[in-house]
């Protein structure tokens, strides 16, 4: 098999077990924060808070456990593109829901 892309397989330094355990502990703490935050009424910020914590957790999993941090730029751009497209899809839908006139 041959390739024209730059593959840096040999240069990969996978994360250590210590880091995995630390990330796992952080994820557990964040889960605790989610539960705690659910008991406080922040009004509109309830959703913002829940989604922010979830985003941090998902990013940790993607970057560390799924090795995105150690991949080359192409992969990072590809993953970013998926999120960008998703936000565009959701964003454009708001042109409908946010501007509907009550009949």
């Amino acid at each position: 098999m041959h390739t024209t892309d730059t593959i840096k397989d040999t240069e990969h330094h996978g994360p250590s077990y210590t880091l995995f355990v630390i990330i796992w502990a952080i994820l557990l703490v964040l889960t605790g924060v989610t539960v705690y935050a659910a008991e406080i009424d922040l009004g509109f910020l309830n959703v913002v808070m829940a989604l922010s914590i979830a985003t941090i957790k998902a990013s940790l999993v993607t970057f560390i456990f799924m090795h995105l941090k150690y991949e080359n730029l192409t992969f990072k751009i590809m993953v970013l593109m998926a999120f960008a497209i998703l936000s565009i899809f959701i964003g454009l839908t708001f042109f409908d829901t946010a501007y509907r006139v009550a009949v």
Binding site: L92, F95, D96, Y99
Partner: peptide, 22 residues
Amino acid sequence: GSLVWAHHMFVSGMSDTAVMVF
């Protein structure tokens, strides 16, 4: 082409803003 889906919905009752944007 991924950003034009709601042109199938011009008479569905969605907002006029969305009709113009799409």
